[in-house]
Computed example of a mutant assay.
Amino acid sequence: MSHSNDPKQLSPSSTQHATEDERPNTDIAIEFGYRLKDLTFNDAIVINKLMHFARDNIKASAEIAALVEDRISKSTSHTQRLATLYLMDSIIKNVGRAYKTIFARDLVNTYCSSFEAVDDTVRISLLKLYNTWSVHFEPALLEQIQQRLGNEEMARIGELIKLLPPKQPNKQNVHHRQSQPPPQTKPQQPMQRPQQPPQQPMQQPQRQPQPQPQPQQPMQQFNQQQRPMQPFNQSPLQQPQQQQMHNPIHQNVK
């Protein structure tokens, strides 16, 4: 027994796509029209979201392509017209299939009417876009565009492109870029130290001779005559009291 129709076995993404496929094409076209209003200039994020919406709702490719072509023809702003042409180019190159066939039906009128309505600055961008279509459309279709615009006019815009300064490629937008060998660098020579003058040997300071000590002269003796010491005569009053107080008891008793 197959369980492919069991909603429990469906992943959230498959359920979402199934819900979108069940919607009528008119509802899908209305939603795309609302989202298309956000594209007012060359915004890569908005263009990428609209391209994914067109890819996920390819069943409404006729309605979505009609909205894109109508936006291009009715745009009064050169910036908005160029941004919508970039959206058409993104859908052709990234989704292809039914969109490529639908856009090819009126590509000559869509491209040429835009080329004739803008100035040279936008024409330079349109000619660059035209040069990338050689692998996506038949050569006969591209020749019709060249015949309508004129070889002289397209050659004039081509000369303006040559005068533009080279643009640095953006790594996020470049898908195919040939790898170039790294630039050869000259081997670095060792750094030479500046030559210093030869250092002269340090001269030791000459020691000065120390003065020799002079011999000390003997000290002169004191020439004064030493007087002989005289004996100390004690007066009777200065004699010790012990002699006076001899036999105190006999002196008091008479």
Rank of each mutant, 00 (worst) to 15 (best):
Ser114Tyr: 03
Thr132Arg: 13
Gln146Asn: 00
Phe137Asp: 03
Leu129Val: 01
Phe103Gln: 02
Asn109Gly: 07
Leu142Pro: 01
Leu107Phe: 15
Tyr130Met: 11
Ser113Phe: 02
Ile102Leu: 15
Ser125Gly: 05
Arg123Val: 00
Glu143Phe: 09
Thr110Ala: 01
Gln146Thr: 11
Ala117Gly: 09
Cys112Trp: 08
Gln147Val: 11
Ile124Phe: 07
Tyr111Asn: 05
Ile145Asn: 00
Leu107Asn: 09
Glu116Phe: 03
Ser114Asn: 05
Arg105Cys: 05
Thr110Val: 15
Lys128Ser: 15
Ile145Tyr: 02
Val122Arg: 00
Cys112Met: 03
Val118Cys: 08
Leu149Ala: 12
Ile102Gln: 15
Gly150Tyr: 09
Val135Gly: 09
Leu142Phe: 07
His136Gln: 12
Cys112Gly: 01
Trp133Asp: 06
Thr121Tyr: 00
Phe115Arg: 06
Asp119Ala: 05
Gln146Ile: 13
Val135Asp: 14
Val108Arg: 11
Glu116Pro: 04
Val118Lys: 12
Thr110Ile: 14
Phe103Ile: 10
Val108Tyr: 08
His136Tyr: 14
Ile145Lys: 04
Glu116Ala: 00
Val118Met: 08
Asp120His: 08
Asp106Cys: 01
Leu107His: 10
Ile102Gly: 03
Asp120Thr: 14
Val122Ser: 05
Trp133Ala: 00
Asn131Ser: 14
Gln147Asp: 06
Ile124Gln: 15
Phe115Thr: 10
Ala98Pro: 04
Phe137Lys: 01
